Amino acid sequence: MRILLVEDEAHVGEYLVKGLGENGLVVDWVRSGVDAVHHGANVDYDLAILDVGLPGLDGWEVMKRLRATRPLPVLFLTARDRVEDRVRGLELGADDYLVKPFSFSELLARVRVILRRGRQQDATVLTIGDLSLDVLRRRVERAGQRIELTVKEFALLTLFLRRQTEVLSRTLIAELVWEMHFDRDTNVVEVAVRRLRAKVDEPFASSYIHTVRGFGYVMEQRA
């Protein structure tokens, strides 16, 4: 996996190149927005880690230009910790936003989640254990058994499979599957998850969809 790191602070850049490299990632490090756009136009990166305050072009503009030619996941790594800046980054389409100073272990975890999500987004057959979902054929099977799902159940399962090991809030699920703002008085998400579990989990020896009390759900294999 190849990462474009855009960071003008030498000590931060050196630290990240070393740390990410030790974890098996190839990192191209540039220090200006102009260089970032040039590299992005010529190399097929899996992720860009961008500072916001850059010489030449700021991180917002760099992301806009990088994505003008191809889809590219972006993680903002910046000292700008105002809520307004975080909201702006996410509204512009950033995949994540991490404020300096930061823990390298947290950064690495977030990078891995984004990279894993990117690979899953490209896949047409999604799997976990003995469960598989064919996006193009709209076919779901577990342990060789065909499972019939409604349109919304299929969309919900696709979301869980594409974002395995991520804890998904009820609010996020409602927005992505039903395109609605979450109303605390409605139980549409809980009902849908319960019906999905009844089809893909309960008839089998192990479960993949788990409740995270007080927040939402996660799909993962557990011993």
Rank of each mutant, 00 (worst) to 15 (best):
G118Q: 08
G118R: 15
G118L: 05
G118A: 05
G118E: 14
R119K: 06
R119V: 04
R119S: 06
R119A: 15
Q120I: 12
Q120W: 13
Q120R: 11
Q120V: 07
Q120P: 03
Q120N: 14
Q120H: 07
Q120K: 15
Q121L: 13
Q121F: 11
D122E: 13
D122V: 08
D122Y: 04
D122S: 14
A123N: 03
A123G: 14
T124H: 12
T124M: 05
T124N: 12
T124R: 15
T124S: 11
T124Y: 08
V125E: 14
V125Y: 12
V125Q: 11
V125T: 15
V125M: 10
V125K: 15
L126C: 12
L126Q: 10
L126W: 11
T127M: 12
I128S: 14
I128V: 13
I128T: 13
G129H: 10
G129K: 13
G129T: 15
D130G: 12
D130T: 13
D130A: 12
D130M: 09
L131E: 01
L131Y: 06
L131A: 01
S132I: 14
S132M: 14
S132C: 10
S132E: 13
S132W: 14
S132Y: 11
L133K: 10
L133V: 15
L133R: 08
L133P: 07
L133A: 14
L133E: 08
D134E: 07
D134I: 14
D134G: 06
D134W: 13
V135H: 13
V135D: 10
V135T: 11
V135A: 12
V135I: 14
L136K: 10
L136Y: 11
L136F: 09
L136S: 07
R137E: 09
R137N: 02
R138F: 03
R138K: 05
R138L: 00
R138C: 01
R138V: 04
R139Q: 05
R139E: 01
R139F: 03
R139I: 00
R139M: 07
V140R: 01
V140T: 06
V140K: 01
V140C: 02
V140Y: 03
V140H: 00
V140E: 00
E141Y: 09
E141V: 12
E141P: 00
E141N: 02
E141S: 02
E141K: 11
R142C: 06
R142S: 05
R142G: 05
R142W: 04
R142L: 03
A143D: 02
A143T: 01
A143G: 02
A143I: 00
A143L: 09
G144S: 06
G144A: 05
G144H: 00
Q145K: 03
Q145C: 05
Q145N: 09
Q145S: 07
Q145F: 09
R146G: 01
R146P: 04
R146C: 08
R146V: 11
I147N: 00
I147P: 03
I147Y: 00
I147A: 00
I147C: 00
E148A: 01
E148P: 00
E148W: 04
E148G: 09
E148N: 02
E148R: 07
L149F: 10
L149C: 08
L149T: 07
L149S: 05
L149R: 08
L149Q: 01
L149M: 08
T150N: 01
T150E: 10
T150F: 01
T150S: 10
T150L: 04
V151G: 03
V151N: 04
V151P: 01
V151A: 02
V151L: 13
K152N: 07
K152C: 08
